[in-house]
């Protein structure tokens, strides 16, 4: 079976000479959730626009489900649903009609029961006769998702799906994404929120300056690049780290009231926490609190971008 999405050396140069994409190659298997992370202007939206037919590419090829987006655009686009970043909706259209329009444009007959199912799942059923401009921002976002799902796509692109969305709706959105994955839908989402990628993505792709820096399984990436820190808060401030603790590479934390111990997590190395704590109390420190903190994908991301720069 061909990969659901196969990008080969996709390049995009704007007429003003800006290289938005500098040869992106990417394969995404069916049923996968891939999160594309990257700063503003990295090329995430450009990449999605090219795959979906909204932008043209300067060079390279894109296949969706084995269909070339240029030569076999009907078959390719039939498989794709897209949720844009902007809340682009006809303000005077009714919610139900928005979905019907989308379905119709993809050449499918009415399918009222399908649309009812989608509206219910997105908690929009009660709003089906409301006009779009009467809805809140979060609800509009749902309508966009509903439109993208109206023709039952096999690949769903979510461009910043949770930008400006409240916590509850975000959780809702994640649930929807997981449900879709269970039904076999392939999902590509772009995001600034790293915890989002961490929470739902199978793989993470980091894109910066028009290039893919890496694509790796989320867990493996966390494993490979993750760090752990233990913060030992003390009753009394510490002026100098005693000689007996030098082997641990400790540094002093805020207001000199804590000691910070960094260690690589899950990498098979013994962190030696027990001996550290024993040695700390032997050095005469009184502990107030102990916390551990695992580096998030965000830290990894920042590190990666710094390395790339």
């Amino acid at each position: 079976m061909p990969p659901m999405l196969d990008l080969r050396d996709v390049r995009k140069t704007y007429p003003n000479g800006t290289d938005a994409l500098k040869g992106v190659s990417l394969r995404i298997e069916q049923g996968e959730i891939l999160a594309l992370l990257g700063p503003n202007g990295a090329g995430k939206t450009t990449l999605i626009s090219i795959i979906c037919g909204i932008s043209t590419m300067t060079a390279g090829s894109v296949e969706v489900g084995g269909h070339d987006v240029a030569t076999d655009f009907r078959a390719a686009r039939q498989l794709i649903g897209i949720v844009p970043q902007e809340l682009s909706l006809d303000p005077f259209a009714r919610v139900g009609n928005c979905l019907r329009l989308s379905r119709g444009l993809f050449g499918l007959p009415r399918g009222d029961s399908t649309i009812e199912g989608i509206l219910k799942k997105l908690s929009l059923w009660d709003k089906r006769d409301n006009r779009v401009h009467e809805l809140s921002g979060g609800m509009k976002r749902r309508v966009l998702i509903g439109k993208a799902l109206a023709h039952e796509p096999k690949v769903l692109f979510l461009d910043e799906p949770t930008a400006g969305v409240d916590v509850e709706l975000r959780k809702d959105m994640w649930r929807t994404v997981r449900d879709l994955k269970e039904q076999g839908t392939t999902i590509i989402l772009t995001t600034h929120y790293i915890d989002e990628a961490e929470a739902i993505a199978d793989r993470v792709g980091v894109i910066s300056n028009g290039e893919i820096l890496l694509v790796e399984e989320t867990e493996a990436l966390m494993h490979r690049m993750g760090r752990k820190e233990m913060i030992i808060e003390l009753q009394e401030p510490v002026d100098e780290i005693p000689e007996s603790l030098s082997a641990y590479g400790l540094r002093r934390g805020r207001n000199n009231r804590s000691l910070v111990y960094s260690y690589v997590s899950m990498a098979g190395k013994r962190p030696g926490i027990t001996s550290l704590l024993t040695d700390i109390s032997a050095a005469g420190f009184v502990l107030r609190d102990v916390q551990t903190r695992q580096s998030s994908l965000e830290d990894i991301f920042v590190d990666l971008l710094r390395d790339a720069a």
């Binding site: 037919g53 794709i80 844009p84 444009l105």
Partner: peptide, 13 residues
């Protein structure tokens, strides 16, 4: 209003 994205991404010639 931006809804052109849908027209361009639909399987329409």
């Amino acid at each position: 209003i931006g809804t052109i994205y849908e027209l361009l991404s639909a399987p329409l010639s």
